[in-house]
Design a protein around this nucleic acid. Structure first.
Length: 971
RNA sequence: GCCGGAGUGGUGGAACUGGUAGACACGCGGCACUUAGGAUGCCGUGCUUCGGCGUGGGGGUUCGAGUCCCCCCUCUGGCACCA
């Protein structure tokens, strides 16, 4: 240590890093100016010749456990990218807020009585320290927190906008498409003027309706509405949750409690009105295909037809049974129908009295009459939870209703069943069953001995006893007025739909899996709804002037929770206990004067705050608007050119230029945020149609975890590794052998690795470099603490190339860069730029190491070379780069220095190594001038002794790819 | 079951439109400097019976395949009775 007092050690890194972090903070060098408003600096904005860029991360929830080394991965990546683009002359905005509402703080509050705000603020302090130590170049003036009233005031404001609007399917959008949100006042005006008729053929005029009746009509159009509907109720959690938050084994994502379908009055968001736009606009953004696919899948748009089936023997005017099918071409093969047990038409279908003559005994469920059978089946089905339904797998159950319908294509009478494999929530809740082409229907037909008619010719070798879902010509599909036989599926579908329309039996239609978004939660720690109910139970939005509706203090933070399996329990939100807050007298400014109201006691889900935070970052000090129009348009307005890979003719939707976060939010946050953005766009509050024009999902860092012989995780930091005689690693914990696996970092696997430890042992720059060097950003990869030293060694060599370790003096020389080094330098610049552009940080680091190693081999490093590598390293390891830059004699931070530019003339080599292959195998190499002609190269290659030897019998062909390759093929 | 993604040295990973497989790093081995080194520097490191063989396995296209096509295996993500 004594002889190398100025070595780049962890201690020195610590000093340098803390010093530069202070300097950055004091100078506000990462503060990005706005064109107008509170952070306005129009001159500075105009001074950026490279334009502007908004780079964001999915913001963190401040957990009590602090960060682990997996968390910063995305933040480092966005920081490197941002710093690089600042050096390209752009006004880069990179900032990070806190997703401060959430369940953990509330659960802690329930246990300890400590206010969630206190817990959350304490956690934020810890997290901010850890993040600051990482050296992120953030605009800290914009570090918004969702729990602050000044923030959630605008969350509530957006809710009011959504509540006060409706989706007009006929309205024309600026892009010419149909359908957009409009203020609810315009709908009311239409009703008042009579321009719009009342629903359900009600012929009264608007003024004839009572206030409650009007509210009912209006509420049925609102984009946010309270309704009594089947929702996911988790008694153990004490709250309802959204469809997206239910795992596929029927449990709540939070807390893993059983979830039951219950009819409860809850707030919903009419996201289904946006199904098409949410699906279509995925083409306009640059996202991982995987995530787009997940969203498309979740929206679940399928094109098909509605077909009406008349019930046989029903009195005139009886409603037909409507089915949805994606395969109208198979209608000739529909041999029975199935309704969901809850289908509203079931009651009217079931005939009184005995089973029809000749009813197959297996269809009756063992009951004496259709009515008894249907009642019993429906009861059994209603008692089954989703989990139980799933456990039954594909075993088909059901009963005959006793009624028949007429197949419109064939006129055949087909039996109508109810069965729980048909879901009320999708399509029309009724299907035409086509066993020939549908596996599920085939199974059902097997169980109930129903006929099967193939209407598509199966491919050869297709098993006789299976449905055929593949492509083929139609068969058995003709009647007096329609002949589909021989047509391929697509053609047959179109022909059938035309026929159905002509005959009045049906029409083409589209069905979606997406359901409306359940938006209320029975929790304390969330945004209160800006909603009050009058004495008639009608919901009113409070005037904007009353915002924010602040979260009141409560004696008890917990919702009432129940036995997790008590499906019959009722939610009870904590806010309901604060009577003086709930019961208010207000003048809503609607002309009714002061009235008695009850406040909504549910709170908004955690997603609310994160649906729009990307907008608030832009203008966080604006107290008059969510974001000013000019500022919004400057940062996220549509760009001239669409994103890469967009279909021809696409208009850019605008949005965040780079958004990085975990793929676990693919159908939650990322879908909800898109929905809110589109509503705000429709209502004219933003110019961008998408929140995130480019989204990148980073992989996870997995850390080794160890289990003992009982399978219990043991503390990973206490495990010792030894290499056995067979060369394989063995692991022991307190003397006992344990097995290693790689998994998510956290408490449950006892494999926590804290960035604090890495700062102490190596410094932040080394940690940053290691995390960025591990591999492609989108891949998950294993953490290996002992490999970090490689990153440290690189920085030490870089340091040593500039600073004398013994004296601390700068040791670069003021001499020109020699030609060979210059060529390496420019090739490095070229490659590093390309890598940085594409988030290829791992390969950029490899190039920088190579160049640095080349400098190490020189007797002395020319100043210009040192400066160039320092600038190139700066985005990745900003502290050491700033320190070296300053020691090299620059007074200013390098934040806005120009990134090195490669000279194209220096990218081409004078001579290159040419590979000489014989029959495709490398046999020799020759140095040739890089501008060698094909003929000359061919001659040179053919003259080589090895080639002469191999071609003694003659030459068949010679492939020349000058200057790098010659392939000789002998006869 | 359906739809994606991925299989490259002991390890993490490189390889632009088909054209020198294994960049860079860890680990490992050797040497130097050292009282010592787990510091630093330098050298080596896919396997090999030294003919060759090598990018999960098998076939194909091509002068030439990690890269393109077909079949199969394994791992992994999402959806899951969605009509």
């Amino acid at each position: 240590m004594s002889e190398t007092a100025h070595r780049y050690t962890a201690e020195l890194a610590d000093q340098i890093e803390l010093a530069w972090q202070d300097r950055w903070e004091e100078s506000g060098v990462f503060n990005a100016p706005n064109p107008s408003g509170p952070f306005a600096d129009p001159e500075k904005v105009a001074s950026y010749d490279g334009g502007h860029m908004l780079v964001l991360d999915m913001f963190p929830y401040p957990s009590g456990a602090g960060l682990h080394v997996g968390h910063p991965l995305g933040y480092i990546a966005t920081d490197v990218f941002s710093r690089y683009h600042r050096m390209l002359g752009k006004n880069v905005l990179h900032c990070l807020g806190m997703d401060a509402f959430g369940l953990p703080a509330e659960q802690y509050a329930v246990q300890t009585g400590q206010h969630p705000r206190v817990t959350t603020e304490a956690n934020i302090v810890i997290m901010k320290r850890q993040l600051r130590r990482l050296g992120l170049g953030l605009d800290n003036r914009r570090a918004i927190r969702t729990m602050d009233p000044e923030y959630y005031r605008w969350t509530q404001w957006i809710f009011l906008k959504i509540f006060n609007s409706w989706y007009d399917r006929e309205a024309v959008r600026p892009d010419g498409g149909l359908g957009r949100a409009r203020p609810i006042t315009e709908l009311i005006a239409d009703f008042e003027s009579g321009a719009r008729a009342l629903p359900d053929g009600d012929e009264r005029s608007w003024s004839d309706l009572s206030a409650v009746e009007r509210a009912e009509v209006i509420d049925s159009h609102r984009l946010a509405y309270a309704s009594e509907a089947p929702v996911n109720w988790a008694p153990g959690l004490g709250s309802v949750v959204a469809n997206e938050e239910v795992t596929n084994d029927g449990r709540s994502e939070r807390g893993n409690f059983p979830v039951f379908k219950r009819n409860l009055r809850q707030w919903m968001m009419r996201i289904t009105d946006y199904s098409d736009r949410l699906a279509d606009d995925l083409d306009r953004v640059e996202w991982p295909e995987k995530v787009k696919a997940m969203q498309r899948n979740w929206i679940g748009r399928s094109h098909g037809a509605r077909v009406a089936f008349q019930v046989v023997g029903a009195p005139d005017g009886t409603e037909p049974i409507e089915v949805f099918t994606t395969r109208p071409d198979t209608l000739f093969g529909a041999t029975f129908m199935v309704l969901a047990p809850e289908h509203p038409l079931v009651d009217s279908l079931v005939p009184q009295g005995e089973w029809p003559a000749g009813t197959n005994p297996t269809w009756t469920g063992g009951e004496a009459t259709p009515e008894a059978s249907v009642t019993a089946y429906r009861l059994a089905a209603s008692r089954k939870s989703d989990v139980e339904r799933q456990m039954e797998g594909k075993d088909k159950t059901g009963v005959f209703t006793g009624a028949y319908a007429s197949n419109p294509a064939t006129g055949t009478e087909i039996p109508i069943f109810i069965a729980d494999y048909v879901l009320m929530g999708y399509g029309t809740g009724a299907i035409m069953a086509v066993p020939g082409q549908d596996e599920r229907d085939w199974h059902f037909a097997d169980v109930f001995d129903l006929p099967k008619i193939r209407t598509v010719q199966p491919t050869e070798g297709h098993p006789e006893d299976e449905a055929f879902g593949g492509e083929g010509p139609a068969i058995n599909s003709a009647n007096d007025t329609l002949d589909l036989n021989g047509k391929p599926i697509a053609e047959a579908k179109a022909a059938m739909i035309d026929w159905l329309v002509a005959q009045g039996f049906g029409e083409a239609t589209v069905s979606y899996k997406l359901r409306d978004w359940l938006f209320s939660r029975q929790r304390y720690w969330g945004e209160p709804f800006p909603i009050v109910f009058d004495t008639d139970g009608v919901a009113h939005g409070v005037p904007e002037s009353m915002l924010p509706i602040e979260l009141p203090e409560v004696p008890d933070y917990s919702p009432r929770t129940f036995d997790p399996n008590d499906a019959a329990s009722e939610p009870e939100p904590p806010l309901g206990r604060v009577r003086e807050w709930v019961e208010v007298e207000l003048d809503l400014g609607d002309g009714r004067g002061v009235q008695k109201y009850r406040r909504e006691t549910n709170t908004m889900p955690n997603w609310a705050g994160s649906c729009w935070y990307h907008l608030r970052y832009l203008d966080p000090e604006n107290h008059d608007e969510l974001v000013s129009a000019a500022t919004e348009e400057y940062w996220v307005g549509p760009r001239e050119t669409p994103v890469a890979g967009a279909p021809a003719g696409t208009r850019d939707p605008g949005g965040v230029d780079l958004y990085i976060g975990g793929v676990e939010h693919a159908v939650l946050h990322l879908l909800y945020a898109r929905f809110w953005q589109k509503v705000l766009f429709d209502l004219g509050h933003v110019s961008s149609e998408e929140p995130f024009r480019t989204y990148f999902s980073q992989g996870y860092i997995q850390a080794p975890a160890y289990r003992d012989d009982r399978g219990q995780p043991v503390e990973a930091s206490e495990v010792e590794e030894s290499v056995g005689e067979d060369g394989q690693s063995a692991f022991t914990w307190r003397g006992q052998p344990v097995t290693r696996e790689f998994g998510k970092i956290g408490k449950s696997l006892k494999n926590m690795v804290s960035p604090d430890d890495m700062y102490a042992a190596y410094g932040a720059d080394t940690l940053r470099l290691y995390e960025m060097g591990m591999g492609p950003l989108d891949q998950s990869k294993p953490w290996d603490t002992r490999a970090i030293v490689g990153s440290q060694r690189f920085l030490q060599r870089l340091w040593r190339n500039v600073v004398d370790e013994e004296t601390g003096e700068v040791r670069v020389v003021d001499e020109p860069i020699d030609d060979a080094t210059s060529r390496i330098l420019h090739r490095t610049i070229d490659a590093v730029r390309r890598d940085y552009d594409e988030l290829g940080f791992n390969t950029a680091i490899a190039r920088l190491i190579e160049f640095n190693n080349a400098l190490t081999k020189l007797d002395a490093v020319p100043r210009a070379a040192a400066e160039q590598i320092v600038l190139m390293v700066a985005p990745l390891a900003p502290h050491i780069a700033e320190e070296l830059w300053s020691r090299l004699g620059h007074a200013e931070s390098l934040t806005h220095e120009d990134f090195p530019v490669a000279d194209p003339a220096l990218l081409v080599e004078d001579s290159v190594t040419c590979v000489v292959q014989i029959k495709g195998k490398v046999r020799d190499r020759i140095e040739v001038p890089s501008d060698i002609s094909e003929d000359e190269l061919r001659e040179k290659a053919l003259a080589l002794p090895k080639v002469v030897e191999a071609t003694a019998g003659g030459v068949r062909t010679v492939i020349v790819r000058a200057p790098k390759l010659v392939n000789v093929v002998p006869l």
